[in-house]
Design a protein around this nucleic acid. Structure first.
Lengths: 336, 336
DNA sequence: GTCATACCCGTAAGCGCTTACCGTGCACGT
DNA sequence: ACGTGCACGGTAAGCGCTTACGGGTATGAC
């Protein structure tokens, strides 16, 4: 591999000049700079990231911690983060803190804390107190997206208000018997999100003087098939709700499919509303409370990059991302 | 940040001993080793990846190049890769070589070639000759998943045979008027995959003496909504096929939805078969040619890790991943 | 008692960069 | 003629590790 020495030798300058020339720093004449660039190109020289990082203390790398990569929210957030990073010439290190509890500690130590990143952005994760402390003691800019973590800046929608608005939409349409498909997600994920959404559901129901029936509080494990199963079960019993609020669009789609399974019309017999505005939502005509994880991810990355840029003092405040109602064809007034 | 010196001082040994002790190398007595470990823990010491990499030449990082992160195939492959990497204590650097053509060159130079990875695994990407050359001249183990690239080892299903088998399934059921939903994917993706699948479709049709009608060769851009649209259009014309082969499950689901849009029954009026065995396939009762990108990713990672381990001489051969038919409820004999 | 043999562990030379600091040479003002 | 300042670019000291090598001490064989 050709190193900076080779370039310096070939260009007849010192390695310091090569370094300056190639990175666009001042104190290099145009003539020298272009000569160095030419030589570097010819030799196919590319600076070693590790060496630069060691010498400068900046790795130009952002760590992104995700609980998985196979859910819509994370994908979108990842794409958003990536968009900002490439704009700033940063690279992305992906840490998949998957379910297995045992690995987690190892990954934490071996990878995340190994100073290979300048900043860290975590998606929808829950941290143990010890993990939180380690993260903070790392001392580099950190932000959390999708589920608040005490002591760390946060970007995300107002989960409770969003679920409340979803429920309110159904109530406004005239529904009085409304079920909720919530449910915990996998281990290690941020539990507050489903909890807050359920609280929002309760808020709206209670504010409207409607009963929250325990047998209509389902758990759909945040994905289509389980949701479809539990909703099917519920629809089989004597008394049925006229509408369903689901904590996510995937679960809402599961509910729609369950309605079809049971021979019910959507929205005629059953209205369904979700949260997310998932890729598939439009195809299913799903009414939903839209959020934009791409934008949330991009914003998170931008904030961290700003911190690293050091232009402005790091903002210490969390930001609440917007969510808004999109009415499609899965909700309508109930038929009495 | 505490460095190896701090630990050495605190433990009363040299930094060399700290290094050896912490990495489990021989030539350290048990007593010393455990003392060093204790001290390191107390100080919260974690070795700097950059420095280790620089000194040892191994970064313990694998680069993964993807065209996007928001498609099922890539997600699954990523998860598979991640599984193997964490087993080997490797980290993952994710390079999202998204659409924009301009960025690509930059990303290539700035990131991929910057020696921050020990090996590289690329998903479904097409490379320009110059890119290929640069990759190879990097000299580290490389493998491609999902679409063959000349001169680089490859893991993937036999695209042509798989599409042929899908088509054959319909033919065996008695279908004679069969449409194909294929279509290019985004820029920069490997074009051979859709092409080979279409060729497989043709193979089967011709072998059975069936006509391939140009107006029944659709392009669904590898996703649900576009596929739904073009299939809807086709179903509106006077003469309809009795069955559809789609190049992916997402497009197949689009076709199913289009059938419903047009008031047709699946599989009564229209049989649909896909390729992938996507997460949603089961929910839609979709018959499909299943492949396992998780396993393909895992295998790719394993091969590279083996190469790096240097135990066995690097295998130079590509491997053909299996695919197999899963019959569900979206295919049946045609009603004449 | 001597010498070879292990077994530990320290010494020091890098790995390939960045950057503070200093030394030129030249243009300019006086 | 001189000093002054500026624009360039070289020198060298790290950054925090890994690892070849060598030296010291205890152990065993003879």
């Amino acid at each position: 591999m050709t190193s900076i020495d080779d370039v310096a030798r070939a260009a007849g300058v010192s390695i310091a000049t090569v370094s300056r020339a190639l990175r666009g720093l001042p104190n290099v004449s145009d003539a020298t700079r272009s000569r160095v660039k030419t030589v570097a190109d010819e030799l196919g020289y590319v600076a070693s990231a590790g060496a630069s990082g060691l010498a400068s203390g900046r790795t130009l790398t952002m760590g992104v911690v995700v609980p998985s990569v196979s859910r819509w929210f994370y994908q979108m957030a990842l794409e958003g983060i990536d968009e900002e990073l490439r704009r700033a010439n940063y690279d992305m290190m992906l840490f998949n803190l998957a379910a297995r509890k045992g690995d987690r500690e190892r990954v934490f130590h071996r990878s995340i804390l190994r100073k290979r990143t300048d900043a860290l952005i975590a998606l929808c994760l829950e941290f143990t107190p010890s993990e939180r402390e380690q993260l903070l003691s790392l001392g580099h800019p950190t932000i959390v997206i999708g589920g608040p973590v005490k002591g760390i800046r946060h970007i995300g929608i107002d989960e409770r208000a969003t679920a409340r608005a979803a429920t309110q939409h159904l109530i406004t349409l005239g529904h009085r018997r409304i079920a909720h498909v919530g449910g915990d997600d996998d281990e290690g994920l941020n539990r507050r999100v489903p909890l807050d959404r359920r609280r929002g559901f309760r808020d709206a129901m209670e504010a409207a003087g409607l009963a929250v029936r325990p047998e209509w509080l389902l758990s759909g494990r945040f994905s289509l098939a389980p949701s479809r199963a539990v909703v099917n079960e519920m629809l089989a019993s004597a008394e049925r709700p006229t509408a369903i609020v689901a904590n996510s669009d995937e679960m809402a789609i599961g509910a729609i499919m369950a309605a079809h399974d049971s021979g019910l019309q959507v929205p005629g017999d059953l209205s369904v509303i979700g949260i997310d505005n998932h890729d598939l939502a439009e195809s299913f005509g799903l009414t939903t409370m839209a959020q934009d994880p791409f934008e949330q991810g991009a914003l998170g990355a931008r904030i961290l990059l700003d911190d690293l840029g050091g232009i402005v003092p790091p903002r210490r405040t969390s930001v609440t991302a917007p969510s808004h109602l999109i009415v499609r064809t899965s909700t309508a007034p109930p038929i009495h």
